[in-house]
């Protein structure tokens, strides 16, 4: 028996349908999270969680179908990178909140954030004939492009905790939301994870560069800004550890780190003459 794949046109339709189904489910989940947060009903948070988890299925299908259509993984073009980053972010949140049910309220900020990534995808050209350059192969390359997905997931959880902290701080204490110290600890923990995963991305990129060009570090603008992001995260963690930075100050610094990471990933390759321009097609 031979397995016949659907043709190119059918795959494109499947990608679009699955993508929009996922978006609708995530949107509904965001609504339930918001309602749960306002009303304090844990049932709404639970429904939001399960809707988001269900949304992962068509999202997986959309990514898989696109992979089959274009013949390469979701790392080459901006639109597919945004989709896979949203996927990683939501996946990481679901893993994190599956056990810590009290922290599901973070989804109120995180899910709309992931939806913004998916919405940004609509404004970008979705070309299908582009093939990966000759340098895009090897184990280090695979680690380099894969590690950014959970790294951004960790960044999103940390930034959501930070925003929720700042939002909640101005309001009277409520039992509906995770407490301020818990949100702060969550921000700290996921900043630590982002530090590890961003570090893995830099290390794998350096090893890949060494294999490709014989130089693991070229002080390229994107390399520099990745290092700056990593150093900023390191600074945040050191300030927390040695200078007792927590709460509001740590939340604002986390927002700064996140902004720099977004600048590094999405804007600098367009603005500067970088060796990373290749992936920005």
């Amino acid at each position: 028996m031979t397995l016949t794949l659907p043709d190119h046109r059918h795959l494109l339709i499947l990608t679009a349908v699955a993508h929009w189904l996922a978006v609708s489910l995530y949107l509904s989940a965001s609504g339930f999270f918001f309602h749960g947060l306002r009303s304090g009903k844990t049932k709404s948070l639970k429904i939001g969680f399960w809707l988001a988890a269900t949304g992962m299925l068509p999202h997986t299908l959309a990514l898989g179908a696109r992979w089959l259509t274009v013949g390469h993984g979701p790392y080459l073009q901006k639109d597919e990178s945004l989709s896979v980053l949203a996927y990683g972010t939501i996946g990481m949140f679901l893993l994190f909140s599956a056990k810590s049910t009290r922290l599901r309220g973070i989804g109120t900020i995180l899910l709309p954030g992931a939806l913004v990534l998916m919405a940004a995808q609509l404004f970008l050209p979705a070309e299908t004939g582009i093939r990966p350059p000759a340098t895009f192969n090897g184990i280090w390359f695979a680690i380099h492009v894969t590690s950014i997905i959970p790294a951004m997931g960790a960044f999103f959880i940390a930034i959501s905790s930070a925003i929720l902290y700042l939002w909640q701080e101005k309001r009277p204490p409520s039992s509906k939301l995770p407490s301020l110290p818990v949100l702060d600890a969550c921000n700290y923990k996921y900043a630590g994870f982002a530090f590890i995963l961003w570090g893995i991305m830099i290390v794998a990129g350096a090893a890949w560069a060494e294999q490709s060009w014989g130089s693991y570090w070229s002080w390229d603008p994107i390399e520099n800004w990745s290092l700056i992001t990593w150093l900023l995260l390191g600074l945040l963690l050191h300030l927390r550890r040695f200078h007792g930075w927590q709460g509001k100050k740590a939340a604002w610094l986390m927002i700064a780190c996140f902004s720099v990471s977004i600048l590094t990933l999405f804007f600098l390759p367009v603005l500067t003459g970088s060796i990373h321009k290749e992936y920005l097609l």
């Binding site: 520099n224 150093l231 900023l232 390191g234 050191h238």
Partner: peptide, 24 residues
Amino acid sequence: SPFTIIAMMGAVGTASLMGTIIPQ
């Protein structure tokens, strides 16, 4: 001193930033 460590990290970050802005 934690201040030295933080200042050094800030200095390396600033140097990287300047390396991006000023043509090398």
